[in-house]
Simulated scan of single mutants.
Amino acid sequence: MKILYHHRTRSKDGQYVHIEEMIDALRKQGHEVIIVAPPSAESEAFGADAGLVAWLKRHLPKWFYELMELAYSLVAYRRLSRAVRLHRPDCLYERYNLFLPAGIWLKRRYKLPMLLEVNAPIFEERARYDGLSLKRLARWSQGYAWRNADYVLPVTQVLGDIVASYGVARERIVVIPNGINEERFAEAPDAQSAKAALGLQNKLVLGFTGFVRDWHGLDKVIDLIAQDPPASSRHLLVVGDGPVRAALEQQARDQNISQRVTFTGIVGRDDVARYVAAFDIALQPAVVAYASPLKLFEYLALGKAIVGPAQPNLMEILTDGHNAVLFDPDHSHGLPQAISRLCGDAALRQEIGDNARKTIAAQKLTWQGNAARAIGLFKNMRHA
């Protein structure tokens, strides 16, 4: 099958991972993928922002930047139309973004079957965190895209419910969570070797990967470790960076446990597995209510004992006492109590980790599986 893949993402972050893995999975299954997108971020280091675009967003008036986003759809439509005439694709796969109706215009003009992957309700997200000036236009653009795609592919059922609230029929909403590239994690070292490589021999490693934000709750983990006696083996390993790293490092210094907390900074994608392999307990201390966090699938694939909040989007994948220990996110002591429970029970850690690893195959949580589901939807539309 010949697939036209359209996105408007330049940041080299979790979005980039999803895009690259999905394209790679489609190609490995023998499909031709034609990409229409802004200039590539290939030359940027992993974790880099969108460069000039990010600068414009920070410095231009919001209303002007939002009109520029919408105007980009004209550019995108011309590029998409050119790709259709040149390659004659069978279908269109688009990663949803706000103020981006170009894919819908193309679908209607050329009668292409279209899947729209949705990773977040971007209107609600930006209205809450960044602020939007042209709110009515923004909300219209989101609903227009969601209602006019053949199928909408949200990453969680929670997000699917938001999509449905815009008037999208349930039968056109197909939940496809994020996944894992099994090849990328197949050669990860065993836990003891991974710890030795990091100088963490004989440590009970509490690990976190990703962009560190204040609402992640890692300050509570540092407080927990600070209550331990000096000879305790508990160690916090944070694989990533973020705006609160300096504050957390200062917190550790203030409590005289800086030697028991390690921040790696940004780590390349190919190196993540060898760090996560060193975890005894993998932390997902907080998560956006509708998200499908990439780190969760990495934790599962490497068979880690996961601690996470008992909220609906995570509970689509995790079951308390089976493949994770879940805590009440509204309880101030929930996270430290869940961590302490696992720290004190090696057998439980092993059981949870074993079940975590089995979850990937049981729920088909791989990029290859996701690509196959997308192709299945395209084929159904062609034969309808």
Rank of each mutant, 00 (worst) to 15 (best):
V307Y: 05
V288C: 00
L296R: 00
C343V: 15
P329S: 07
F327I: 09
V287T: 14
Q368K: 04
I352G: 02
A371V: 13
N313W: 03
I352M: 02
A291V: 14
L283P: 08
H322C: 06
A291S: 14
P293C: 03
A291W: 12
I360M: 02
R341G: 03
A291H: 11
A310C: 10
V287A: 03
L314E: 07
S332K: 06
D354M: 05
L348F: 05
N380T: 15
A347N: 13
L326T: 09
A347Y: 07
R373A: 12
Q284T: 13
T319Y: 01
P312A: 08
I352W: 02
M315T: 15
L294Y: 13
A347E: 15
L302C: 05
P336L: 04
I352P: 02
D345Q: 05
A362C: 01
E351W: 04
D354I: 10
F297W: 08
Q350K: 14
T319Q: 09
L294F: 11
L326F: 07
I317H: 01
I306R: 01
P285V: 11
I317R: 00
G344R: 05
T359C: 01
G376F: 04
S332A: 12
P309E: 07
L294G: 10
T319D: 09
P285F: 08
A346M: 11
Q363Y: 11
L365E: 12
G344W: 10
T319A: 03
R349A: 07
L342S: 08
R349H: 10
E298Y: 05
Q363H: 09
K304W: 12
K379E: 15
C343F: 11
V287R: 00
G303D: 12
G303P: 04
A286W: 14
V307A: 00
A374T: 15
L314C: 06
I375W: 01
D330P: 00
E351N: 04
W367Y: 14
V288G: 02
K295M: 09
